[in-house]
Amino acid sequence: MRKAYWPQLLLLLLISGLCFPFTFALACGPSHPPAGAPAPPQVTATSPVNGATATLPLKEIIIVFSHAVSPCTSYGDIALRDGQNQALSIQTKIDDRQLTIYPQQPLQPEATYRLIVPVSAVSDMYNQPNIPAFELTFQTAAGPRVLLNQKDLAFTDAQPFFCPKIEQLLVPLRAVSTTLGAPIRWDGATQSAIISYQDRQIRLTPAQKQAWINEQPRQLSNAPVLFHDRLYIPLPAVQELFGIAVTWDEATQTATITTTAS
């Protein structure tokens, strides 16, 4: 006697009818939006603007679309590339119409960068993807100059930058310490940096004004800053911590550090 398979077939059709439309609704690509739907999302504004020279540090790149968007099939292919076409590590976030790209490493001064938002990186509520692809090219400005004993201090990784909030230059602690011949290490237990310079044992913690020199508390004018996993200190703190002379020339954007006792 032949078995009746129609109950299983009916169940399969029912599941297909419930699930497949939902699956298709999640997909991005050509669609048939209802009458009156807006055109596919277009870029209406960016920061920085295309061809601009951006001041460092550049914490985020902002792309604004014509209407609200969400991630689409090529969202993971959004890329930020340097002048050698090397991709940089980034994180991305969408909030309504705004796509924000966060570089995960410091950008270099006087360099060219290119942001690529491919077709179908985002789509609107009607599953209409962004078309065509969008590219944004910008340059970074020259950074402040730092002289140590009248010689330019080389910054191969983290770069100094001016912080408007405290109106002071922030310099990478490791670059300064290394150039001074002062060993530096990170103490994970106390979440602090420890530097040995001449007869000084220096300990300082991100976001805390109180530092320690030879186990004695020393109040800094402004706290160290942790940015992109690099520790920066305000320029006056170089003098406060290491006991060396520091000056700042606003007109030439030049900091001068001299290793003589202050």
Rank of each mutant, 00 (worst) to 15 (best):
A175G: 14
V176N: 09
V176E: 08
S177C: 11
S177T: 12
T178M: 12
T178P: 02
T179S: 15
T179Y: 09
T179D: 15
T179F: 07
L180F: 11
L180Y: 10
G181H: 13
G181R: 14
G181Q: 15
A182Q: 11
A182I: 11
A182K: 12
A182N: 10
P183K: 13
I184K: 11
R185T: 12
R185A: 14
R185L: 14
R185N: 14
D187T: 09
G188A: 13
G188E: 15
G188Y: 10
A189E: 14
T190G: 08
T190S: 15
T190N: 15
Q191K: 14
Q191I: 02
S192I: 08
A193E: 06
A193H: 03
A193K: 05
I194V: 15
I194C: 09
I195M: 12
Y197H: 12
Q198M: 11
Q201H: 11
Q201R: 13
I202G: 06
I202P: 08
R203Q: 14
L204Y: 02
T205H: 07
A207C: 00
A207W: 02
A207P: 00
A207K: 06
Q208R: 14
Q208G: 00
Q208V: 04
K209V: 04
K209S: 11
K209P: 04
K209D: 01
K209T: 10
Q210I: 12
Q210K: 12
A211C: 06
A211Y: 05
A211W: 06
W212T: 08
W212R: 07
I213Y: 06
I213F: 07
E215T: 11
E215V: 03
Q216E: 15
Q216A: 15
P217M: 02
R218P: 00
R218V: 14
Q219H: 04
Q219T: 13
S221M: 00
S221E: 09
N222V: 00
N222L: 01
N222W: 00
A223F: 01
A223T: 00
A223Q: 05
A223R: 03
A223I: 01
P224L: 05
V225C: 02
L226K: 03
L226D: 02
F227I: 00
F227Q: 03
H228K: 08
D229K: 12
R230Q: 09
R230P: 00
R230M: 00
L231R: 03
L231H: 04
Y232H: 03
P234G: 07
L235S: 04
L235Y: 05
